[in-house]
């Protein structure tokens, strides 16, 4: 039984050169979709069908892509939701957030609300067991959480998911793009925003309240010494036991009872 997997893809920007490319998280979502056994992967994009970067997704192995043609900065949520409602895929995948516009990360939530299906954020792997999907969710510090949900569902894929495969030039050339004209409302709220180049701020080193410059210098340069415990002249076995007891007490490693 083939399962319909729709992947919503967007046009990204290279962080250094600023050139159009496949968006990093969306490419990982395509990779995840292609790794699902027996999946019938459909790519959907809302925007300009003439964008060359879209062919990078076709080069990953999907044969066709549907492009909902609309103005560049229009709101894609309604056309996407309408298209997905008529298509009824079992799984909808997309990157957690885009990298070329508002990057709000709200589209998956709005789509899931429109389709009335559960949303699972930040998954790094997905496998099917009958009508259920078993997923691993990527957490900080390299941890993974195991989740299960029944189909249909919407899931987002973060940049910590497995790296996407390279795009093959021949496949990219041969892939077909189906264009569908839709009416999308212009984003009026955004007209009131002012846009400027991002201002990078230095990383915060230490938060402190100091009365004088001397206090500030001291707080930054002084090493917090003397609070730790120092064990000296212990035989290796006892020292190792002290270290292991410390790791267990702090919850770093679990000892068997």
């Amino acid at each position: 039984m083939a399962i319909d997997v729709a992947v919503l893809v967007s046009v990204g920007r290279h962080p250094v050169s600023g050139r159009a490319r496949r968006a990093d998280a969306d490419a990982r979502a395509v990779e995840l979709a292609l790794s699902i056994a027996g999946a019938n992967v459909r790519l959907i994009h809302a925007g300009d069908p003439g964008e060359p970067a879209l062919r990078d997704y076709l080069g990953m192995g999907a044969n066709t892509m549907t492009v909902l043609r609309m103005a560049p900065e229009a709101d894609p949520v309604l056309p996407l939701s309408a298209h997905l409602s008529s298509m009824r895929p079992q799984i909808v995948l997309m990157g957690t957030r885009a990298e070329g516009g508002e990057d709000s990360g709200l589209v998956p939530y709005l789509v899931a609300q429109a389709l009335e299906v559960p949303l699972v954020p930040g998954i790094v792997s997905l496998s099917l067991a009958g009508e259920r999907a078993e997923m691993l969710q990527g957490l900080p510090r390299g941890r993974r959480r195991s989740l299960a949900a029944s189909l249909p569902l919407v899931a987002t894929v973060p940049v910590m998911a497995p790296a996407p495969r390279m795009s093959a030039f021949g496949l990219a050339r041969r892939g077909t793009i189906e264009v569908k004209d839709v009416t999308a409302a212009a984003d009026e709220a955004r007209a009131a925003w002012t846009e400027g180049p991002a201002r990078r701020r230095p990383k915060r080193i230490k938060v402190m309240k100091a009365a004088s410059a001397a206090d500030r210098v001291r707080a930054v340069t002084e090493m917090a010494a003397g609070k730790g415990k120092v064990l000296q002249n212990l035989p290796p076995d006892e020292a190792a036991k002290a270290i292991f007891d410390y790791l267990v007490a702090e919850g770093i490693v679990q000892a068997k009872p």
Partner: peptide, 17 residues
């Protein structure tokens, strides 16, 4: 000085322990 728990001794002997 930085450590919360420090053991002063031979690393080679401590690792197997």
């Amino acid at each position: 000085k930085r450590a919360d728990l420090a053991v002063v001794g031979d690393v080679q002997a401590l690792m197997p322990a």
